[in-house]
Write a protein that binds this DNA or RNA. Structure first.
Length: 355
DNA sequence: AAGGCGGGGGT
DNA sequence: ACCCCAGCCTT
């Protein structure tokens, strides 16, 4: 029996029942696929329901305010996905008359849709014969064929894309694509795959050669960099000082408390002596640290954040206005604590602090 | 070709 | 501490 047929038989018995599998609506599939980019199914599920309820059709999505989309996206990470979705929805309205396209060549033109997502949308919505190549597929194929070409190199990407296309079931690309991803997620897992009960354990090259735990091969990225952020929670007369992040760095254009970054791992005592601090605050501005250092681990940097609160509101002196700050007016204590808590404790970035 | 971009969970 | 997750975009 062919690889594809065996795989689909496994899938019919062990596959997951996921909400976006009960439809061929390309809009709903697009929604799920963007949310699931570099995101586990369990993490993305509640967001999928939230978005579908807020925007049942693509024209509603296109008509929404970006702030509303970002607020729904809050906490999911890779925020450019949300902005690209908004762009894509507008493209569907303007270029496709509001009818969400389902062919590979059309959907890949949409912002935020690359090879993987275009193959997924076109195969799931119209059974187009395009093979998906995601992290699961790299893993399954590299082990099955015993290929040690790095999956994140230029050559590796090309090699695996070709093999994936060869293995695809041309008559049922939709089921095949779902099957190979579920197989990777549930059976051929990154760590401790259960090869003894695997339906491919006789033909799988990696299993026969005992190298399953060394495949797939991946080129290592750069080491994470440490960064030190100092946040100032500054309030006076029921106003709270906030600022908007810039375009280029992490959490682009999102909101946070006013912040100074230092090269060294400074405590409040050290921070007070820096030229940077005195550029922004008067000597009379007296702060106390709130809690301990909070570590935010991102995929490519470690951020050590400290939070300081003004000891006496009257001592506030801001010397420079190039901070891009603004005041949240008439904030009540509950809302303020909610804001601080969600930012400080929950490790979630703020989308819109104006309630 | 390489780097940047998040948050969460597993080992 | 390091890896991985239904990747994509920019330089």
């Amino acid at each position: 029996m062919s690889f594809a047929l065996k795989l689909m038989n496994w899938y019919r018995e062990h596959g997951r029942d996921l909400p976006w599998r009960n439809t061929q609506n390309p809009y709903i599939i697009w929604l799920s696929e963007i949310i699931l980019q570099q995101t586990r199914v369990e993490q993305g599920l509640p967001y999928f329901h939230r978005f579908l309820e807020a925007f049942p059709i693509v024209t509603k999505f296109a008509a929404a305010e970006e702030e509303e989309i970002l607020r729904l996206w809050q906490g999911l990470g890779y925020y450019s996905r949300a902005r690209n979705m908004h762009k894509a929805a507008k493209m569907v309205v303007n270029d496709f008359d509001g009818i969400f396209p389902s062919s590979y060549t059309e959907v890949i033109r949409l912002s935020g849709v690359g090879d993987y997502t275009a193959a997924a949308i076109s195969s799931f919505s119209s059974n187009e014969a395009k093979a998906v190549v995601d992290g699961n597929v790299y893993r399954v194929l590299s082990r099955y064929f015993g290929i040690d070409e790095p999956i994140n190199g230029t050559k590796g990407k090309k090699v695996f894309a070709e093999i994936a296309a060869d293995m695809l079931d041309m008559k049922d690309a939709s089921t095949y694509n779902q099957a190979i991803m579920d197989f990777g997620a549930l059976q051929c897992k990154p760590k401790k795959p259960d090869c003894e009960i695997c339906v491919f354990n006789l033909e799988c090259v990696a299993h026969r050669e005992g190298i399953v735990d060394r495949l797939p091969v991946k080129l290592r990225g750069k080491a994470s960099k440490n960064r030190y952020f100092h946040y100032f929670i500054v309030e006076s007369d029921n106003q709270l000082l906030m600022s908007k992040r810039g375009e280029a760095d992490v959490w682009a254009n999102l909101y946070e408390f006013p912040m100074l970054e230092t090269e060294q791992d400074l405590t409040l005592e050290g921070l007070l002596k820096t030229a940077q601090f005195s550029e922004y605050f008067d000597e009379e501005a007296s702060f106390v640290q709130l809690g301990n250092v909070t570590k935010h681990i991102l995929s490519h940097q470690n951020i050590y954040a400290r939070f300081y609160m003004l000891e006496d509101a009257k001592s506030l002196r801001i010397k420079k206005s190039n901070w891009n700050y603004f005041f949240v007016e008439k904030i009540d204590t509950l809302a303020k604590h909610k804001l601080i808590f969600s930012f400080l404790e929950k490790n979630k970035q703020l989308i819109n602090p104006k309630f």
